[in-house]
Design a protein around this nucleic acid. Sequence first.
DNA 1: ATTTTATAAGTGAGTAATCACTCAATTTCA
DNA 2: TGAAATTGAGTGATTACTCACTTATAAAAT
Lengths: 191, 191
Amino acid sequence: MGKAEDTKARLERAALTLFVARGVAETTTKEIAMAASVAEGTIYRYFPSKEQLALDLFLRHHQGLAEALTEAQRPAKGLRAKIEAIVRCYCEWADRDWTLFAYHLLNQHSFLIQVPDGMANPVTVVRDVISQAMKAGEIPKRNVDLAAASAIGVVMQAATYKVYGRFTGDLSDHVRFFADAAWAVLSVKEK
Amino acid sequence: MGKAEDTKARLERAALTLFVARGVAETTTKEIAMAASVAEGTIYRYFPSKEQLALDLFLRHHQGLAEALTEAQRPAKGLRAKIEAIVRCYCEWADRDWTLFAYHLLNQHSFLIQVPDGMANPVTVVRDVISQAMKAGEIPKRNVDLAAASAIGVVMQAATYKVYGRFTGDLSDHVRFFADAAWAVLSVKEK
DNA sequence: ATTTTATAAGTGAGTAATCACTCAATTTCA
DNA sequence: TGAAATTGAGTGATTACTCACTTATAAAAT
């Protein structure tokens, strides 16, 4: 890794850690610089602004996750298998870089509206899979967004609880449960 | 309503609306005052600081919701009925004052650690109900926090989607589905 | 090899703007 | 008429960002 790239990576990691620990607005450029062992001015050699740095970090993870989920579910046949593939991929992303994952999870509200049109999107991937399965008659037809939200919530709220420290250990340890639970949610029948 | 109480209520409502629309850190005291049609200084006759105002709003809803959930589930017999009572109560709170609800939902990260020990807590209520049901053998035994997170996620993620505008209409319209889905999550068997 | 030159990387004091909060003066109203 | 409520200009502190300058790196010329 070149010197410049190393500096940029150090800045991103320092910012990430602070953003998760104290929030984006509450983190100062001086703190980021100190944590990365550079002067404040150096930040602006690599990023046009603090906000852009924060957005870059978000979008990179957002797009990367979306593409990984797309690839993960593609070879799987049938909704049940696709769900498991998606859940496994998601949990592995979370466990691989928990700080980045937590940052993405905690700051969706701020950045989701700034996702460029056409950029790969984790939510869309899941929605499309569910929509297909409804058309194919694999699960009961209902409001797709509602069903997707509830199914996704099964995993995301567990991840959120881990961020809050309410439970510990790898998310991946619970892939089977999450997949079964999401499947159960989507299979709920109108009575 | 007295004049002072009216001013205080207007300030709270103005702050709430702005906090949801733009975030707490991004909302200035000047904006809050303008939205409430008072001078900036008036804020400080009713609240010691902007942060305390934000915390007050959060804690009042947090505690109110926890107490309502406790009452709602008490008379219900059996987990299935308790779940439905909890879900219905939660959705009604959301629909009754959506701005306050959205504020609470979007700012848990910042305020949850500041909840005083012993204060009624929505999460604890649900956790206890699930824990009881596991002990009673109504549902399979597993990590209570994990199960609670996934069950709660079914409803909370749907609420989050509504905040993002991904779907519209009252949450209460889907109580039956949420309850069925949460029940299905908790009933998932180890294989 | 040594010096010169060019470019990239890094620095940190300084700047302009913002913002939460104060307080002396004014208005409201019982 | 006195207490309570309100006002808004003022204050001190903070902060994102700039920029003139220094240092490191490497290529080119001698």
